[in-house]
Computed example of a mutant assay.
Amino acid sequence: MFGPFRPSLVAQGGLLWKNPFRMSATRKANVRKRLRDVDQVVAAVEASGVRCKALDEALTLPKESEMQARDKYTVFSRYGLHHRKSLHKVPKFTKKTQRTSPPGF
């Protein structure tokens, strides 16, 4: 048990991914910064005069300053508690453009 062939924590069924329950203040600040960066890119592309479907869809989304805190830090989840899921639990949440919730949520 305490020798050179002792089982590892993963082999014993230990916790493999350590995901905190809440988002830290640093993670929240990084999310806000990322949203502002995206807003700046969309504004720059719009100012350049380029028109495309993706730009039109991005212009309909609310800006970071217009978003509620609930929409900044959580996303809609059909199976989550109260139909919300914390943003840091979503894989690749930086690549998703889900800034609004379905009506009623």
Rank of each mutant, 00 (worst) to 15 (best):
G14V: 12
V31R: 01
G104V: 08
K96G: 05
T97W: 13
K89H: 10
V10K: 15
L15S: 07
V75Q: 00
T94F: 15
F5C: 10
R99M: 05
V90E: 00
N19E: 08
R99T: 00
S65N: 12
R27W: 01
L59P: 00
D56Q: 12
S8T: 15
L15M: 11
T94C: 13
S48W: 06
S24Q: 05
D71Y: 03
A11W: 11
S77N: 12
E64R: 07
D71G: 02
T26S: 08
H88T: 01
T94A: 15
G14C: 14
A11K: 14
G13Y: 07
G49S: 05
K89C: 06
L87C: 03
A47L: 06
C52N: 08
G104N: 08
R84F: 04
P62I: 10
K63L: 14
K92S: 13
L81C: 04
V42N: 00
F5P: 00
P102K: 11
K85F: 06
K63M: 09
L16W: 09
R36P: 00
G80P: 00
S65Y: 08
A44I: 03
D71L: 02
A44S: 09
A47S: 07
K18D: 03
H88N: 04
Q98S: 11
Y79K: 14
A44Y: 06
D39K: 01
V38I: 15
A47G: 05
S48I: 04
Y79V: 14
L59M: 10
L16M: 11
K72Q: 09
A29N: 08
V31H: 00
R70D: 02
H82S: 07
V41M: 12
G49F: 05
R51K: 15
K95W: 08
H88D: 02
A58F: 01
K85C: 12
M67V: 07
L59R: 10
F2M: 10
A11V: 11
R51D: 07
K92N: 15
S65C: 12
R22E: 07
T97L: 15
R32K: 10
V90A: 00
R34W: 12
L55I: 07
V75N: 00
K28V: 05
